[in-house]
Structure formats: C-alpha cells, structure tokens
Design a protein around this nucleic acid. Structure first.
Length: 575
DNA sequence: GCCGTTTTCGGCCCGACTGTTTTCAGTCG
C-alpha cells in the first residue's frame, strides 16, 4: 500500500505532539503542524509530485528538512526522527493530548511525576486522587478530567454542514431578539462552507448593557456552559455541538468577523503580513503603534495588508493569499449563476415526487432546466428503470415540456457503471438521451488501478456525459473509493466529459481540492442537487459553497450555461 | 523547522477564560 498524503501528515502531527510534550521549541512544533495541514489540503499526491521530479520545497511551509523527511517516508514507510522520538516519549502520550483540558505541559507532568501513559492509568490515578497534588493541578481540574473520561466527552463529533448551519441559524434568530444587540453573524467553518463542522463561532455586536451573554447561556438547547465571560462565552448544545459567542464593539465587527471566520492558518498568514508592515492585527482591529488603522469592515482588514476582500470560502491558506497578491481574485460562482440542475430523481425510481412536482420545484428555485435522471435497471436500488419504463418516462417529459412554461426538462439517466466499466443500458437507448450520468453503486472496494481503469472505460463510452458522485463517499458512512482522481480528471478532459459536484450534504462530492484540479485542467463541473424530493433543491447552496471552496467561477461550472449551450456541451465529441 | 522589500540570523499571531495562584501558566480557538 503506497504512502498517501494523509499518512505523511499524520506522522508530522505525531512528531509535533511528542515534541510539544517534550517542551521543544514551539516554532519548530508549529513548522510540523503547518506542514501537516498543508499536506492534508494539498490537491496533488506527494508521491506523484516526487515521481515527476518536482521540488517539494516549493510548497509553502516545506523546507529542505521536511522535504527530505517526506521523501524518506514515501521511500521507507516510516521516519527515523519519529522512531528516535519514541525512545524518549512514549507514543501513547499523544492520545492523552486529545483529552480536553490536558495539553502538552500537563501530559508531560503526569508522565514525569506518575508515569501515566494511558487513559486507563490516568483514570485510576484520578480515582485515587493522586493528581490533585501535582503542581498546576487541583481538585477542580481532577474532577473535570475524570468527568470527561467517564462521559467519553472527548469524542468530539463533527456535524454535517447542513446540520450545523441549521443550529446556527436558529441561534442567530434567538440572539438577535435580545435587548441592545445589533449584529449577530455566523463565522467559523460554517461561514467558510466546510463540509463538516466541529463547532460554531458566532460574532455579535451589542451595547455595553446588553444581557446577550446571559440570554445565550439561557438558550433552551444548552447542555453545559463551559466558560462565560463578558466578551466570550462557550456552551455545548444538547446535540453535542460546541458554540462560541464573541461580543465586540461595533467598530471592531470587521476585525472580529475576519478573525473568527478563520481558518486559523489563513489568519496566521494574514497577521504575519501585517507584522511585516508594522501592524498588529487582532479581533479588535488593525493597529499601528496603538493607533487603529482598520477593523470596522473585513475589507479594511484585508486592505491594511494590501489585499482585496477575500470570500470566506477561500480562507484556507492554500495559496489564496499569493493569488490575491498577484492580481484580482476570481469572481466565484454564486447560487443565482446556476441556471439548471442536471441530476434528480422521481417517484419512477427512488425519489419521492412526480416529474411534474420536481419540475415546478426547480422552477420555484429559479432554475431554467432540469434533467430527470432516475436510476437505471442494473442498480440495486428499488424500482430502477428498464428500457420500457424509460420510454414511457420520455413521453411524459415531452408532454410536460409542451405544457410547462419557464422550465425545460432534459431526458437523462443515472446509469450504473458495471465492475468492468460497461454501462448497464443498451447503446441504442443511451444514444437517445440528452445526457447520461455515470455512477458507481457497487464494487467500491476495487484496487486503485482497477477502479481508475473502470471509470476510464465508462468515460470511453460515446454517450457518457457526467461522472456523478465521483468519489462515492457518504460523510460518516462510507469513505471515498480508491481512485486516481487526477488521472480521471485528465481523462475527462481528453474525452470531453464532465464531473459532478453533488450538493447533497452527506455527499458534497467532488471535494474542493479536486474542484481546483478540474479547474486547472479545464474540466467543467456540474453542480447538481441530486434531489430525491422537491425540498432537496435547497441543497444547491451547499454545492455552490463547496465549489467556491474549490475556487470555481461561473465559467468553470457546466450548469451556469444557458440551456442551448449546455445541450451543445453535452453532445461531446471524442477527441 | 521555515523564511526573507530587516535575506543565512533572528525572528516566528494573538487574546480570553479558568484554575491555581498571589501574578500567572495552561489550554483553547
């Protein structure tokens, strides 16, 4: 099994953990953490980059030393520096760092003073009250850690964006209805449209006498108040979602929003830029020698370091700052740019509504065209369509196209890509459709080589239009298939076909880094709802959010085109 | 360990809250 980026990032993170417990130079630790984060978000496979002879030190945060370690890990599967570290610090200690309330100093102290290496040893020492007498520990700390261990609270859940956004929107509404409150805005990873969210960050401005913090902790859904101050309060909701509320003066709103939207890596990079200009940037504003020079708006914060306003979805320190320094940022795709939707299901297969209902709902969402793409016969999904039922569906689509104004229905299918790459409907049928989505619905576990070949063969089919659900993943349920996506994207370009970004919250598939790759290759992405019922068209906004995270502009998206142009593009010509 | 319009050394983002402390270290985001 070849070493992948995630494994390299994990090794760097472990080195950082253990160095931290050793109280090593904090900047050296940060260098490992930064590198781990960069590697994880990297669009390209490091092994492939090395094979192509690329210079890894060109990657920000990777210098001579780390480049050599990456090469060592890829070549040998392990890292001598980590092995050496293990001789001094037991590897198990990095697990103790995951326990809230325990940081490197305390984990180090527990190990040095009491020899504690595991959760089990920790729990027994806590129960024997041996920890309260260590320097820096006390009764409260002992009780809190024991509580966390017993309740298994350390398992911090991640929530799908749609779920987190739902909680956030309710809370915003509740907080806005407080005396003296002016603005309440969701920041953090929800604002950046990350596919999963660990906690909510809410920024508010309020008059000094506003009871907003008390109202926050009194919210119906609160399970626990972790900390409460005048400017910051942290709670945990009954569902387990942690929420931070920050209250700042109106003049600091921009700085606070910028600060709490993150990402952390992006902010560090921005503040470093500020530092070089002699500026101090914090959540209250931009300061030059204690004189405020910006911070009322986010735009003013970016302007202070010579950059244009940056959409939240870009703020991941994945090259957006360099991009902004070179010239104007791309104008990212927005929901109203999407003129149609090329993937939905009806009652004919496993959807919940009729074709007419889906058409009317799409029109109500300001879409001009909608492709009906029920499942084909070979899929294991109940009531999938055979040739006979498909022909009947076409007649109904024709009738509706005659009847309905303002929405045009395209005839499509979501065809099952068989294990050997064939499609499970006859060519004569496929040739009569306006578009053919190809999806993988079985044999998820094929080897990388086989899976890649399977998709390439499917795309070879002259009537194949769009690779739907490209990775097949379902968040928290099923991981992505093992496939050489860079190659798939490249081959899609050669064959004139497209990739989908399925906007269902549990899919959000294609991921942002592959969207970027597709953009670079010139492969258009179709942002589709994959709707099963009329309400699912609401999900398109999450697909657009993901596309924006992948730096896509309207020109990079297939369904921003007019109906006429889309039909032309779908009639791909083999190259 | 990385980085460079202070360029091969000497910097490296910044503040809030808690608990254990008598002024601050540790943790967190």
């Amino acid at each position: 099994m070849p070493v992948r980026n995630a494994a390299i990032a994990a090794i760097f993170d472990e080195i950082a953990d253990l160095l931290e417990i050793e109280s090593a130079n904090p900047f050296r630790i940060r260098a490992y953490r930064n590198a781990a984060r960069t590697i994880q978000g990297l669009g390209a496979d490091l092994r492939v980059l090395l094979d192509q002879g690329e210079d890894l030190t060109q990657i920000p945060g990777i210098g001579k030393d780390l480049a050599a370690k990456i090469k060592e890990i890829i070549d040998t599967g392990s890292c001598a520096a980590l092995r050496k570290l293990h001789e001094r610090v037991p590897p198990a200690l990095s697990d103790l760092l995951r326990i809230p309330g325990l940081g490197p100093k305390r984990v180090g102290a527990l190990y040095k003073a009491l020899g504690i290496r595991t959760r089990k040893q920790l729990q027994s020492a806590l129960q024997q009250r041996r920890i309260r007498n260590l320097p820096g520990f006390g009764e409260k700390t002992e009780a809190r850690i024991l509580e966390v261990l017993q309740a298994d609270l350390q398992k911090k859940r991640h929530f799908q964006l749609v779920t987190a956004a739902g909680y956030a929107e309710s809370l915003v509404k509740y907080l806005k209805d407080t005396k003296g409150v002016q603005d309440v805005i969701v920041a953090g990873s929800v604002r950046r449209c990350k596919e999963t969210v660990g906690d909510l960050d809410i920024v508010a401005t309020a008059r000094r006498d506003s009871p907003v913090m008390d109202r926050f902790t009194a919210y119906d859904e609160v399970k626990e108040v972790l900390s409460q101050g005048t400017t910051r309060t942290t709670i945990v909701l009954k569902c387990g979602l942690q929420v931070d509320l920050r209250v700042v003066p109106k003049t600091s709103l921009g700085a606070a929003l910028q600060y709490f939207t993150g990402s952390k890596a992006h902010n560090i990079a921005i503040r470093r830029l500020g530092q070089r200009r002699g500026l101090k940037i914090n959540e209250y504003g931009v300061f030059k020698n204690d004189r405020r020079v910006g911070g009322a708006t986010e735009k003013s914060v970016y302007a202070s370091v010579g950059l244009a306003y940056m959409p939240p979805e870009l703020r991941e320190n994945r090259g957006e700052i360099e991009l902004a320094r070179r010239g104007p940022l791309p104008t990212l795709v927005q929901l109203p740019d999407c003129k149609g939707d090329l993937h939905c299901h009806t009652r004919a297969s496993n959807g919940g509504n009729s074709i007419r209902e889906m058409a009317l709902a799409a029109r109500a969402h300001n879409l001009q065209y909608l492709a009906i793409t029920d499942h084909s016969k070979g899929s294991s999904i109940a009531r999938s369509l055979d040739e006979r039922r498909l022909l009947a569906q076409w007649q109904e689509i024709d009738r509706l196209n005659d009847e309905l104004e303002g929405i045009y229905l395209l005839k499509g299918i979501e065809v099952h890509i068989l294990e050997d790459g064939r499609l499970d409907l006859a060519d004569t049928i496929l040739g009569q459709l306006d578009l053919v989505l190809g999806s993988i619905y079985s044999d998820f576990g094929l080897s990388r080589a086989k899976q890649t070949r399977r998709i390439q063969r499917a795309m070879n089919h002259p009537h194949f239009s769009i690779l739907a659900d490209p990775s097949g993943r379902l968040l928290e349920e099923r991981g992505p298939i093992n496939v050489d996506m860079a190659r798939v994207i490249h081959e899609a370009r050669n064959r004139g076909c497209f990739l989908e970004l399925n906007a269902q919250p549990k899919r959000l598939d294609l991921v942002d880094s592959y969207c970027q790759m597709a953009k670079q290759e010139g492969v258009l992405i179709s942002i589709d709802s994959g709707a099963y019922r009329t309400s699912d068209f609401d999900n398109l906004r999450f697909g657009v959010g993901q596309a924006r995270r992948g730096w896509l502009t309207p020109a990079d998206v297939l369904n921003t085109s007019s109906l006429g142009k889309v039909c032309k593009l779908l009639k791909r010509t083999m190259q």
